[in-house]
Design a protein around this nucleic acid. Structure first.
Length: 266
DNA sequence: CTGCTATGC
DNA sequence: GCATAGCAG
């Protein structure tokens, strides 16, 4: 090889080798391809509407992805008693959701933004299996959250939710940021930064349903959780999402117009 | 628990 | 780029 070609060739080999190396070690998906895909782990009866989203069902949660906002408008899943395990798992890397056709945002949009990659379906709720845990690290399950909010009241609410699950049993949870026009954006892909986040928790109580809906600003607050409780109607009003649309109308109306603070131990 | 960043390969 | 360790709220 002539000397003048040595360095360009070496650089090319190293570049291609590096690319192969990275692609070999970075999984494209956290799904178990040997397992039959779960059509939908979430009962359709409880599924919200998609206002401008593409609904994607993973094995352990379902979401509606809003491409213009580069994040999910809602993430829905069951939290069951048997999910409440505390295996020590290693956090994997955030990767694009292979099931979102338009590609979910790259995690690098968040780097140096000042905002956390805040889980919508919490990793702490999906520790019962490796796949369940890893699935929560798809960037379709991530939203820009204020650091103190994510580690603060949002985290405390997630922990409280786990304690409710332990006490009351299975919970159906829908959560997300309030996506609207004119939000601040981060990264090359313009990931929107929600000003508000909501979380709706539903369970059966005897032969009826009871639910809690929280609407809170994307910043740390020291008030009690009760300060942020709203009727589900309020969350529908600000998000445009129709929750529990497949339930009988009377049930839905009654469920969404009220709060049920007394059904839940704070 | 919720995460980020620095450092080495 | 990944892996690990350390740190912070």
């Amino acid at each position: 090889m002539k000397r003048k070609y040595f360095y360009p060739s070496a650089i090319a080999v190293l570049t291609i080798g590096f690319w192969l190396f990275n692609n070999f070690y970075t999984p494209a998906s956290y799904s178990d391809t040997n397992q039959k895909p779960v059509k939908n782990n979430v009962n359709d009866q409880y599924m919200p509407s998609a206002t401008h989203g593409e609904i994607v069902a993973h094995n352990y949660f379902t979401l509606s992805y809003s491409e213009p906002h580069e994040q999910a408008e809602w993430v829905a899943y069951w939290l069951k008693r048997e999910h409440l395990t505390y295996e020590d798992r290693k956090r994997p890397y955030f990767i694009e959701d292979p099931k979102v056709k338009t590609k979910s945002a790259d995690w690098k949009n968040y780097r140096g933004s000042g905002y956390d990659r805040g889980h919508l379906c919490p990793a702490g709720d999906r520790r019962f299996s490796l796949q369940a845990y890893n699935e929560t690290f798809y960037t379709s399950n991530i939203s820009p959250q204020d650091r103190a909010f994510n580690a603060g009241i949002w985290n405390r609410l997630e922990q409280k939710t786990r304690s409710w699950c332990k006490k009351y049993g299975d919970l159906f949870i829908v959560t997300g940021g309030v996506l609207e026009n004119g939000l601040a954006e981060i990264g090359e892909e313009d990931v929107d930064v929600p000003k508000m986040f909501y979380k709706i928790i539903l369970r059966k109580k005897g032969d009826r349903f009871t639910a809690l809906a929280f609407l809170m600003p994307n910043k740390e607050r020291k008030e009690a959780f009760q300060s942020f409780i709203v009727p589900i109607d309020k969350v529908e009003q600000v998000t445009g999402i129709d929750f529990f649309k497949s339930m009988p109308k009377e049930v839905q109306d009654q469920l969404e117009a009220n709060t049920f603070v007394d059904d839940w131990n704070f």
